[in-house]
């Protein structure tokens, strides 16, 4: 009994000494889920917004949001071949982050106070404004106030029309449809007079059509990058990456690539960040 006791104690002491000397930072509090240092990323994007996030027939995604996501992931050290895009419609965005279906979301995702309680937002990477699209030959509408008495397209599930008829109490007649592309058709067929929503979305849908954007913005939206709630390190790293994106000219290039021909006045200086929380 005595004989066996000493070596065992020796081992225990050696183990204790090893534990004392072990490098820091591994044992106590596990870091919150973060995208920093990830080998691969699953990124949520829209599938139905031309020039922002659109799923093509071959299953690949394209658009401004997609290019921004690829650039930012690259800044985090994740090359394009290790990015998986997933379609995340507006209604499932918070859930997709919470249940881990996606690591981050770049999908015309506006930062709002209620959303900030569930999602950590990096950015905004762009500040679009609500603006109005009219027929090219229509000179009677110059600002949102001129929509008084006009027919305005109302898309189910979108809040943009409320900003005109409810928040500004402009008495326009609402014409209800399901999608913005239907709005474009109705505009061409002179069944509505105006479509009003985020200018980037308008520019995307109007591409290749004859409509005219008023360039009379009346709100500031904030397109942010949604992250798991609490991923402050990821948020800070993305904010630095967005800063680089504007400083190295990528932001201006991408905006021009996707919206340059739309006639929309684009902002190529860096937006004011929201702050990571």
């Amino acid at each position: 009994m005595h004989n066996r006791r000493l070596p065992r104690r020796g081992i225990a002491l050696a183990a204790a000494a090893a534990a004392v000397a072990a490098p820091a930072g591994c044992a106590l509090e596990p870091e919150a889920d973060t995208i920093v240092g990830a080998r691969s990323l699953t990124i949520g994007v829209k599938a139905d917004q031309p020039h922002l996030g659109l799923r093509r027939s071959d299953g690949r995604y394209e658009g401004f949001d997609v290019d921004v996501a690829v650039y930012l992931a690259g800044r985090l050290g994740v090359p394009p071949e290790r990015i998986r895009f997933r379609t995340t419609p507006s209604s499932v965005r918070e859930r997709a982050l919470q249940d881990g279906t996606v690591d981050m979301i770049v999908a015309s995702y506006s930062i709002t106070a209620p959303r900030k309680t569930k999602v950590t937002f990096a950015g905004p990477y762009y500040v679009p404004h609500q603006d109005t699209l009219v027929r090219a030959d229509d000179t009677s509408i110059r600002s949102v106030r001129d929509l008084e008495g006009k027919r305005l397209c109302q898309v189910t599930g979108s809040n943009s029309w409320r900003r005109v008829t409810e928040e500004r109490e402009i008495k326009a007649t609402l014409v209800r449809v399901d999608t913005y592309s239907e709005c474009m058709d109705l505009l061409d067929q002179r069944r509505v007079d105006a479509v009003s929503t985020d200018d980037l979305i308008l520019a995307g849908f109007a591409a290749g059509r004859s409509g005219r954007i008023l360039n009379a913005p009346f709100t500031d939206e904030k397109y942010g990058i949604g992250l798991h709630k609490g991923d402050l390190a990821g948020c800070e790293a993305l904010n630095r990456a967005i800063t680089r994106m504007y400083q190295d000219g990528t932001a201006a290039r991408l905006l021009d690539k996707w919206f340059g021909k739309s006639g929309l006045k684009l902002t190529t200086s860096i937006p004011q960040f929201e702050g990571c929380s």
């Binding site: 800070e236 630095r240 860096i270 990571c276």
Partner: peptide, 19 residues
């Protein structure tokens, strides 16, 4: 558009370093 966002982001970014 140009001055305030940059000033704001500077404080946020150096605050991130402190965090």
């Amino acid at each position: 558009m140009e001055l305030l966002p940059r000033a704001y982001n500077l404080t946020l970014d150096s605050g991130a370093t402190v965090r």
